[in-house]
Design a binder for these strands. Structure first.
Lengths: 201, 201, 201, 201
DNA sequence: AATGAATGAGAGTTCATTCAT
DNA sequence: AATGAATGAACTCTCATTCAT
């Protein structure tokens, strides 16, 4: 038992540090990420942070993994109903709405990817998965007759991904929910009910 | 001819510094903006930079102005033909394609705006102008019979702005041109020719 | 006429700069003396200041001269009455009371003199003059029968100078007027009236 | 013996830094205080100095405390003989004579106190204690019959403090020991022997 | 006689990282 | 596994001084 707790604790501390860094990046950007503050938030010494993550870069890698996992979890469409596509779009929207940190961090990662080849690879891969997922959903919706056949294409997947991207950024301005509504309309899947709490725009 | 002398005027040096900072932000983000490097790129002493911009923050304000001006210039649709809307969309796309720094800097500003109230105001205003411009173009296209009447709405403007935003970021991944093509298709304005050099995706 | 005015102007500007520096030293110490602020206060460019005073050190020399002149003017006892000594003590006290800058600057100079041999010489000379002046007054007072003969000595002159020094500093604390009163009492010259406005302590 | 190890404890390093700063202020004034030089004198990196004192101002506060403690230690008259007052005056004089830095630093603090309210408070308090201490000694000396009764007053205390102040400054000029001798004479406590080494003037 | 523009040298401060314990 | 102490390198910003005009 006691072994399990200790092991658990080690992983706990690691992910506590990652989570703190994740929040710091969301709140102040890479620009404002300070290892000392991250350590302080978790309540450990700065040297302890370096025990778990030898360099700041390694800590950031941890944040990347975390953000990806967080995002990917929604990318895998769950639920099996015929209107999976609509559910999916809404799930993505809801995710960044409920956890605005995610949008902020994804934005930071996106910008950073042009300077960091490794990150660029990760992001590209993520986009690829995303694109394929959406395209798969489109095909299925068409096959099951929930959508007009002309909608099935890379191009529609591309615009969906682009819109979701634009809509997920913590932008001052932009009208995310209006955009989402129109997207559903164009896709011909706009009918079904929306969360009451989302009524705002 | 007297205008063509090589002597640096005050304004020249100011904008040279702003431009260098602009490029640095595009290349390395706010995270990597170093006043000394900016000064070095222009070929002046760091103290000279501070002669023109008392603080780093003031220099950044200069960059914000520059980026806004650069962007806004395209936001005002020029050309008066009936297919203004298509031209407009393509102009925006071409702008960030020909000058990728702009997309990068706009992305940085967008993220920064959540931490900087002044910048937030500027961005919000810019989005507002952008949204209205697009909506105006939509209305006009409908009135002149180039578009179906049901398309005229805030929602279409919103998705256009969101897509253009998503498409302008220097993302590793994403398929900007596919998305743009589908956007034109949905708007029913996809006919006209495109620049050959843009055929890539 | 116009020649006279020009000549006058040059000297004016010099002494305006010295006076501004004098005030700055009084207000913020040598620690806080900034040539740019001095120039700004006079309303000229920093380069103009350097036209009149090639270095900051030269400007400070100007301030030293000014302060010395300001102080020495009172050191020469004017008035010829029998109670010159009392008048003299009060004149010194009144001087630094009416122009607190003088005490502050003299204090700064005193401290600086341990680091600046030239200034040390100047100060030493000033103290010498001061001491002799006071001793002369003492002797005369004794001779004219206003004071007990045993009081005539270097030692009394020394304590007078020391007290006046201690009393002239812009010290937070200390009770200058009480000290002055006791000094007069010990010298046996305390009778005569004092300025009403000085009643405070 | 375990006490005698050479290892620097936290407190040691702190006070080593304060002491170095104290000496620097004495030698070059606030004007010439450089954190880097202070750190170098102690043999540590500048960052280490900032580990102990987050800002230069905090370091200066440390110096103020040190100087006050150094001074106050003498202000408390020790020794219980009947001629405490004379011993006290001489102790003060000897203190600044043996450690001229103290006079210099006190002078710097005095001047600075007009610009720094916190310091002003500290200095005022110190003067208050000083004044009361001297007055207490005077009263006692009178009561025990070592002094004429008319001498017991705030005014005598004030002139003693003023003289000691004037005499303690590192002035180029002034005749501190003459002044002190006359002070003792006026107080009627001049008899007793003086340290041979002090015979100079 | 006066100035705008420019600079070298250096100031205080910060930060990721290391190391002995 | 954890920490206090220490550091090198770099950062933004300042200031007296210079120079072409």
């Amino acid at each position: 038992m006691s072994t399990m707790r200790t092991v658990q604790t080690r992983a706990d501390r690691r992910s506590a540090l990652v989570l703190a860094a994740y929040r710091h990046i969301a709140a102040r950007g890479f620009e404002g990420l300070r290892t000392r503050e991250v350590a302080a938030e978790v309540g450990v010494n700065i040297a302890t942070l370096h025990y778990y993550f030898p360099t700041k870069e390694k800590l950031i890698e941890g944040v990347v993994e975390h953000a990806m996992r967080r995002f990917q979890s929604t990318l895998e469409p769950h639920g099996t109903s015929a209107d999976q596509l609509r559910n999916y779009l809404r799930a993505v929207r809801r995710l960044v709405q409920d956890e605005p940190e995610l949008g902020a961090v994804m934005g930071e990662l996106m910008l950073r990817s042009s300077r960091d080849p490794t990150l660029a690879g990760t992001m590209e891969q993520m986009y690829e998965v995303w694109h394929r997922t959406v395209r798969g959903l489109l095909k299925r919706a068409v096959k099951e007759g929930h959508m007009r056949p002309d909608a099935d294409s890379d191009e529609v997947a591309a615009i969906i991904v682009a819109t979701l991207t634009g809509v997920s950024l913590p932008s001052a301005g932009g009208r995310p929910d209006l955009a989402m509504r129109q997207l559903e309309r164009w896709l011909g899947i706009g009918a079904a009910p929306r969360r009451p709490s989302q009524a705002t725009d």
